[in-house]
Simulated assay, not measured.
Amino acid sequence: MSSVEDRLAEIGLTVPEVAAPVAAYVPVVRDGNLVFTSGQLPLVDGKLQATGKVGAEVSAEDAAKLAQICALNAIAAVKSEIGDLDQVTRVVKVVGFVASDPSFSGQPVVINGASELLATAFGERGAHARSAVGVAALPMDAPVEVEITVSVQ
């Protein structure tokens, strides 16, 4: 087990199996020392954990927890490509999409759920650039979707 997985275990989390794609794409691609994940939904054992718009059917607090699940799924995708998560030298970029009620503007708070998990998992290597974007809708009516780019040895 990697030190990343040890840190996740300390907070009661384990890296799941990589989530199966819901359309025509692959979950992860490596190009040189960069690993790019596809957008990850808040799926647990293949089941979407919530649906709806943040600020309407889903609270910002619940959406942040969903973003954490997305980040954990992104970590799983990275692991499926590189095997040992200790090979990650840096989380380079996080992009988070939040299906938002038109009046909701707290997208950064929601995506903090993903950013904070990555910081816990990777320590100082988890500091990253980020975008948090409000959108009208996401696949399967998911409230949040997260993709990450990491640099590896």
Rank of each mutant, 00 (worst) to 15 (best):
A127F: 08
P42L: 08
V133W: 00
V29H: 03
V22P: 00
N33L: 05
L117H: 09
E17R: 07
A60L: 04
A50H: 03
D6Y: 05
I75E: 08
S59L: 01
R90A: 15
D45K: 05
V44T: 12
G126P: 07
V135K: 01
S103C: 04
D101V: 05
A119D: 13
V29A: 12
L85M: 11
P108R: 02
V146C: 03
F36N: 13
Q49R: 15
V92H: 08
A114C: 08
N112L: 14
E57S: 13
A129K: 09
G52V: 01
S105W: 00
V78H: 06
P102H: 08
V98R: 02
P16I: 02
V54I: 10
V98F: 04
S103A: 15
A63P: 09
D86M: 01
L48D: 12
A121P: 00
V28P: 01
D6S: 14
D45P: 01
A20Q: 10
K65L: 15
T149H: 03
K65D: 15
G83E: 05
L8M: 14
G106N: 06
S151D: 14
T120M: 05
L66T: 09
V150P: 07
T37K: 09
P16T: 04
V92E: 13
Q87F: 05
P143D: 14
A74Y: 01
Q40L: 11
F104W: 04
E61R: 00
